[in-house]
């Protein structure tokens, strides 16, 4: 089992009130899965993703990623785990503007301690894989949104992570480009990479093989396979985030 989550809770103290963002979530993710997390704003889907992505530590419950108990790690260990086992794809791409495309892809390898020459080689290879092998020295602002997201995907993949978290990866893209990005993610999944997609778009969630519907910090229901395809009607009552 890649991800094992038991009774995960996350509370924030905001002034005098305690916000319960996650109220006990239990979830298992197997290697090679394509999982979608859906839910309205404030449902806790982002909090869950941040916890699963080792960006945050839970207030309660347990989480083990690839056998490592995450809740017990300190900053350095957590960062290392994030660096080696997790890849992120963000809605706003989050590329560093002053770096070139290839330099952006290199960032996680720098923190991994890979030598410069080897790093460059790995990154160029990865850029080729996402169809950007010809533009390594451009800056992010010289590329289109879809191209930027491909760079971000290359960056997420270059460390050969166990699991990719994609947080609304098509949110800033047009339909056609969004579709292309989803195809890339699906292709990755087909090759064995575990993909967790956080989205509130029905048509994107349909790419997944398992869907988790969250509400009020809890898992409301889980749908598998054909159930997801029939979702259109079921989710009509769900407000758009």
């Amino acid at each position: 089992m890649l991800v094992e989550v038991k009774e995960l809770r996350r509370e924030y103290v905001m002034g005098e009130t305690v916000v319960k963002a996650l109220r006990g979530v239990s979830l298992n993710v197997e290697k090679g899965e394509f999982l979608a997390i859906m839910g309205p704003s404030g449902s806790g889907k982002s909090t869950l993703m941040h916890l699963l992505g080792c960006l945050d530590r839970p207030s309660g419950g347990t989480y083990s990623l690839d056998g490592t108990p995450v809740e017990k790690l300190d900053d350095v260990e957590l960062s290392r785990l994030r660096n080696r086992k997790v890849g992120f794809v963000f809605q706003a791409f989050n590329l560093i503007m002053q770096l070139t495309v290839v330099e952006n892809v290199e960032v996680p390898l720098i923190y991994m301690g890979i030598e410069r020459a080897q790093r460059r080689e790995l990154c160029l290879e990865m850029l080729k894989a996402v169809g950007l092998g010809h533009r390594p020295n451009h800056r992010p602002n010289e590329l289109s949104g879809g191209e930027n997201q491909r760079v971000a995907i290359a960056r997420a993949l270059v460390t050969k992570p166990q699991i990719i978290f994609a947080d609304e990866p098509t949110g800033n893209l047009d339909t056609k480009t969004g579709h292309e990005i989803m195809e890339i993610l699906q292709g990755l999944n087909a090759k064995g990479t575990t993909v967790v997609l956080v989205t509130h778009e029905m048509n994107k969630a349909k790419w997944a093989r398992r869907l988790i519907h969250m509400q009020d910090g809890k898992i409301l229901r889980q749908l598998v396979g054909k159930e997801i395809q029939q979702l259109k009607d079921l989710f009509q009552e769900m407000p758009e985030a």
């Binding site: 960006l55 350095v76 960062s79 994030r82 660096n83 989050n94 560093i96 996680p108 923190y111």
Partner: peptide, 16 residues
């Protein structure tokens, strides 16, 4: 700030 967040997400420690 966003760059810092991104670097942290990509594996940078506080020390980095």
């Amino acid at each position: 700030t966003k760059e810092i967040g991104t670097r942290r997400a990509l594996g940078a420690t506080e020390r980095d």
